[in-house]
Write a protein that binds this DNA or RNA. Sequence first.
DNA 1: TGAATTAAGGTCAGTAATGGTCAAAGAAAG
DNA 2: CTTTCTTTGACCATTACTGACCTTAATTCA
Lengths: 154, 154
Amino acid sequence: MGTLADHIEAYIKKMLRESQTNSVELSRAQLADNFACVPSQINYVLATRFTLERGYIVESRRGGGGYIRVGHVQVDDSYQHAIKLLQSIGPELDERSMEDILASLRDYQVISPREYQVIRGIIQQEVGTVSAGKDILRASLLRSLLFFMIKLEE
Amino acid sequence: MGTLADHIEAYIKKMLRESQTNSVELSRAQLADNFACVPSQINYVLATRFTLERGYIVESRRGGGGYIRVGHVQVDDSYQHAIKLLQSIGPELDERSMEDILASLRDYQVISPREYQVIRGIIQQEVGTVSAGKDILRASLLRSLLFFMIKLEE
DNA sequence: TGAATTAAGGTCAGTAATGGTCAAAGAAAG
DNA sequence: CTTTCTTTGACCATTACTGACCTTAATTCA
């Protein structure tokens, strides 16, 4: 009936729902303590369930006064298509797939022709500067740019 | 919420904003007294948050009548400032340099605190998913996100 | 005048407080 | 039985804070 990770996930989502601001600040050690598990379990939950593709943004800081902040974007219906495509981006992305995603977003008018050009140009430029890991970089860039765009227009 | 250092930082920045001249003169001992901490804590705050990279100039004098003066360098055009910072990003970018750039952009109000957070979070998350080439990815991501932001606004 | 005193600020190493990473072991699912 | 997901723990990295000790400048006063 649900793993530990599921419970931690649910707990964080509940806090998120109850927050006015759609974001919560956690203490990794304390949360781990609440659930009687090792701290790294928290990282596991965050890494597997609170990803960009799912609309979450996780930010943290170490050291004294450190924290983990989790934010959630409520995605508008008009962006459902964009989110689907975002989710389809894995750890790597070849050029062809990127073109397909961008063209689709443009055709569905999720992004403007201008945004299409800008994003395409940026990625081409950046990917051209590295010799290895092009597909990984492409995946990261497209994911980030799309998310950032959606986030800004929210 | 926030460490002592954060509060001292905020306090100095507030004074800076309220000053006509973009500079303030502090008494280390008195400031430490206000915040009920040791004087060297003030040095810590100055050394970590009011660096030249972030656009601050700190000068001081010891002995009787000693003082600490903090100035925020005036920037002609924040848009140009952003361009300069963008250009300063090389093929690799370590975490500290990224923090400096983002903090500077935030302090010069090129990006909002919210954008600061989101960009920081996106990069943290993406960089966390790769095992090698973190600095390269960081450089690409920051360059792209800032470039994208600026492109859309102009 | 110049040594002693007073009044600042500076340094640095050590300690405490957090969070991060990674690989291996264990559990669940197919 | 194999694969995938979960959990753990040892080790790592970063940030904050403190206190003992040091340096410099102004003032006092013999």
